[in-house]
Deep mutational scan, measured.
Amino acid sequence: HRQALGERLYPRVQAMQPAFASKITGMLLELSPAQLLLLLASEDSLRARVDEAMELII
């Protein structure tokens, strides 16, 4: 289940942060499945989480 969510998330994360897409997707997969579904449904929520992840990385 998580694998399938990751496969759906990755291209969207890659479009926002290509250099760190794998790392960010891995970080996002730590969230609950319900939270992941919310990110897939909301571009704004996904962008906010990706921005948060980038702050942790750099």
Rank of each mutant, 00 (worst) to 15 (best):
L28A: 00
A41R: 07
D44N: 09
M16L: 14
A41T: 11
A34E: 15
A15D: 11
E55K: 12
L39D: 04
A19V: 13
S32W: 06
P11H: 14
R8L: 15
Y10F: 13
F20A: 05
L5E: 03
Y10H: 07
R2E: 14
L38A: 13
R12N: 05
I24D: 00
S22V: 14
L29H: 01
E52G: 05
A19S: 10
P18L: 02
L5G: 02
L31V: 03
L31D: 07
T25P: 00
L56Y: 14
Q17T: 08
A19I: 13
Q14C: 08
R12T: 06
P18M: 03
M27A: 04
L39C: 06
I57Q: 02
D44S: 11
Q14S: 11
G6Q: 13
Y10V: 03
M16V: 08
D44Q: 11
R12H: 10
S32F: 05
I24S: 00
Q17N: 12
L9K: 01
R12C: 06
A4V: 11
L39M: 09
G26C: 07
A15G: 08
E43A: 08
L9P: 01
V50M: 02
R12V: 14
L5M: 11
V50P: 00
G6D: 06
A53F: 13
L37N: 13
A15I: 08
L46C: 02
P18Q: 03
I58W: 08
P18V: 03
I24M: 00
M16P: 02
D44R: 07
A53N: 03
A19W: 05
L29T: 04
I24H: 00
L28T: 00
S22N: 13
L28I: 06
G6I: 15
Q17Y: 15
G6K: 12
P11K: 13
A34Q: 10
D51K: 14
G26I: 11
A34W: 07
Q14G: 06
L38N: 12
H1P: 10
P33C: 14
I58P: 04
I57R: 02
L29R: 02
A48Y: 08
I57W: 04
L31N: 04
Q17I: 14
L29M: 12
L29I: 06
I57G: 01
M27I: 10
S22I: 13
E7R: 08
V13W: 02
S42F: 07
A48G: 06
D51W: 08
A4D: 12
M16G: 02
L37F: 07
S22R: 10
G6C: 10
R49M: 12
I57A: 02
A34N: 12
L29F: 03
L5H: 04
L56P: 01
M54K: 07
L9R: 01
M54C: 04
R12Q: 12
Q35C: 08
M16R: 03
P18R: 02
G6R: 12
L31G: 04
P18C: 04
L40T: 03
K23A: 15
R12M: 15
D51C: 07
A41V: 13
Q14A: 15
S22H: 11
S32C: 07
S42L: 05
V13Q: 02
Q14D: 06
A21F: 01
E43P: 09
L31Q: 04
S45R: 14
L37Q: 10
I57T: 02
P33I: 15
Q17G: 03
A41F: 08
L40S: 02
R2M: 15
D44T: 09
L5F: 12
L46R: 00
Q14K: 10
Q14P: 01
I57V: 06
S32H: 09
L40F: 07
L28C: 01
M54Y: 11
T25Q: 04
L40V: 05
D44H: 08
L37R: 07
S32Y: 06
G26T: 14
L29Y: 02
L56A: 10
R47W: 03
A21T: 04
S42R: 05
A41D: 13
E43H: 07
E30S: 10
G26V: 11
E52C: 08
R2T: 10
L56V: 13
L56M: 11
G6E: 15
T25M: 14
Q17H: 11
M54Q: 03
H1S: 13
L37T: 10
E43V: 06
Q3I: 07
H1C: 09
L9G: 01
M16I: 14
E43M: 07
A48M: 12
R47N: 04
P18Y: 03
I58V: 11
L28P: 00
D51P: 01
L38G: 12
M54L: 10
M27H: 04
M16W: 07
Q3H: 09
Q35V: 13
K23P: 05
L46T: 01
R8Q: 15
L56H: 09
M54G: 01
V50L: 03
M54P: 00
S45L: 14
D44K: 09
E7N: 05
M16Q: 07
D51R: 12
E55T: 12
P11N: 11
R12F: 14
I24W: 01
Q14T: 06
A41L: 13
D44C: 06
V13S: 01
A4K: 11
R47Y: 03
E55A: 13
P33Q: 15
A48W: 05
I58K: 11
L40I: 08
L31F: 08
Q14F: 12
I57E: 02
L9V: 06
E30W: 05
V50C: 02
R47D: 01
A4G: 09
R12E: 06
E7P: 06
P33G: 08
R12I: 14
S32G: 09
L39P: 00
H1V: 15
A53E: 04
A15W: 03
A53K: 05
I24K: 00
A15T: 07
E43T: 08
L28W: 02
S32D: 15
L9D: 00
M16A: 04
L39K: 00
L28N: 00
L31K: 03
A15Q: 13
I24T: 00
D51I: 09
L46G: 00
A53T: 09
M54F: 10
A41I: 09
L46D: 00
P18F: 03
A21I: 01
L40D: 04
L29G: 02
E52R: 09
E43Q: 09
